[in-house]
Design a protein around this nucleic acid. Structure first.
Lengths: 255, 255
DNA sequence: ATTATAATTCAAAAAAGTTCAAATATTATT
DNA sequence: AATAATATTTGAACTTTTTTGAATTATAAT
């Protein structure tokens, strides 16, 4: 039996019985208690169970198991670094628009301890708030899209229009100096555009290198409408400093 | 038995019997009174029980909201049955308002296969939608509250006001024929009231027996404003059929 | 005042963390 | 395809932490 399968079975035992014991599992699976402990630690890291002495329990805070931890595993280090760089630009007391996407999800994690107000369409932000984050969280409403774990569309505008934000942190599917910001879903583009419209301070775009120079289907805003671009080494190579200067975009390379 | 499991069982005994005694528990679990004391202290630290001489009691109903996690685990069978009964009242094509709470969360689960539009402030609905539910999900926006995993407040009204729903499924913290529906948070009350206002068809209240006859802090709507009440056997005993008839409320007992 | 309960300190037992080495699987290279 | 290099998984030996119950003293209830 491979570890992943054993852990999967352990998880299903936990959800079924609410509690499991290390000794028990060790006998049941015919492996040492040490292995079981490591399995439980592994599950606990992902937030799927809660470690206790002698075993583990179902996590009390989560009525159903989150699949969000497993996904969005592309370029994790780069995203983390970009997120940290973005968080460093945010001051306590700010009101910040944040749109959807796995990079902005990392930004939300990085903002956990900031005493700010976050206005977002990224529903996964609720997970972070549930774990004792310091920020105040406001969701814009709208139609929920499973693909992006976000809400968007015309319904969200009345709420966005009630807010003026100091800053906006925007994740994109494509960023190019000529075509600007682009996304594959028109509703997402509308919502993001509205957020940028209502931002009086800096508009910060976060994008891993694989998004740079890419053109998606729907245009959000032009490159001239943004103030800061945070990317990684790979993105750095694809950008012309001169052109960035022309468009008055500050470039930050996160490492 | 591991400590975590023993404490979990003690907690469920407390919620069931309202009071537990150290001696009692010591015998029942076959551990010393000292261990039981420590368990109770541990639970008291987390605010889950109240320590007394010789034992512990259920925490008095304070004006603050009970922790979400604790409520989610109470009366699971009853909630499931009530949720199934509520789902049976919903037809394909309906647009349904659903508010927050652990009972309505069960309703959302039960509606997984329905081809309907759900408008809700219950953010946990996203996790159900993520697992290939058939319904279309619309979130009203607003300030996110960790305690209830929901959004509420004035920001949500512009979105609710764009919707007319056929039905509303409403969870409550207190339901009494004289005082109507009550909740411990004023913003929740506002959002729920607005949902009921914008419902042209049946307003369905789902409430486990422990909510019947209970008065919370803020009034949502009067009992006359609702059409159907779904509860369990325990709730049944607390309700007068005559009074329900007077107020034109249909009663459904879920088993 | 008397009795039961609680707090405190301490020692034994169980469990968890740590470090290391062997076994196995995965990936890269020839 | 075969081999080497690397990473992962597993269990053993040992140390540290947590849990538990006994003995003793303090506190609360009737």
């Amino acid at each position: 039996m491979i570890p992943a399968d054993r852990q999967r079975q352990i998880l299903s035992l936990v959800t079924q019985d609410k509690v499991v014991q290390v000794q028990d599992l060790s006998e049941r699976f015919g492996v040492s208690v040490l292995t079981i402990r490591r399995d439980l630690d592994h599950l606990a890291e992902q937030g799927l169970v809660e470690r206790t002495h002698g075993g583990a329990t179902l996590r009390r805070s989560l009525p159903i198991e989150p699949a969000y931890a497993q996904k969005a595993l592309e370029f994790p280090q780069e995203k983390r670094a970009i997120a940290e760089a973005a968080a460093a630009l945010i001051d306590d007391g700010d009101t910040v628009f944040i749109n959807s996407g796995s990079t902005t999800f990392e930004v939300l994690k990085a903002l956990r301890e900031h005493r700010i107000t976050i206005v977002t369409n990224n529903i996964d932000a609720a997970w972070i708030a549930n774990e004792e984050a310091q920020f105040r969280l406001v969701f814009v409403g709208g139609v929920y899209r499973t693909r992006s774990h976000s809400v968007s569309g015309g319904l969200s505008q009345p709420i966005i229009d009630q807010v003026y934000a100091n800053k906006a942190i925007i994740g994109v599917d494509g960023f190019s100096l000529s075509a600007g910001l682009t996304t594959p879903v028109i509703e997402e583009a509308e919502t993001t555009r509205r957020m940028i419209d209502r931002t009086v301070g800096k508009v910060i775009v976060v994008a891993t290198g694989n998004k740079i120079g890419v053109l998606s289907n729907f245009s959000t805003v032009a490159a001239t409408d943004i103030d800061v671009l945070i990317t990684d080494d790979r993105g750095d190579k694809l950008l012309s400093r001169d052109e960035l200067g022309d468009k008055d975009i500050e470039l930050i390379i996160a490492r």
